[in-house]
Amino acid sequence: MDHATQTVVEFILERFAGLVPEEITKDSLLKDELGIDSLRIVELLVGLEEKLNITFDESDLNPDALVTVGDVSNLLQKYERVR
């Protein structure tokens, strides 16, 4: 698992109840499989910004494009490359 995905997975495990590492993959659906609805996606992204000291550009904050764990880790990779 790449570093960005590992970071996202660890953050999800830390913040959202009842999930185990084995059930979270890059293809896991945030809402339908992990129960991370629109309110919790905002919490996830705000939390990642704080934890990693990055600021997502609003053009990247498209809920339709953030469907899987992989979508979030790809977003993270984009910002880690820029740093």
């Binding site: 009842g18 999930l19 185990v20 809402k31 499989e33 129960g35 609805d37 629109s38 309110l39």
Partner: peptide, 20 residues
């Protein structure tokens, strides 16, 4: 706890799912 979380995801609306 994981089984309970799975049950919650299956049967509850997203806004009802527990934090703990």
């Amino acid at each position: 706890e994981q089984e309970v979380a799975h049950i919650c995801r299956m049967y509850l609306e997203p806004y009802q799912r527990p934090d703990r």
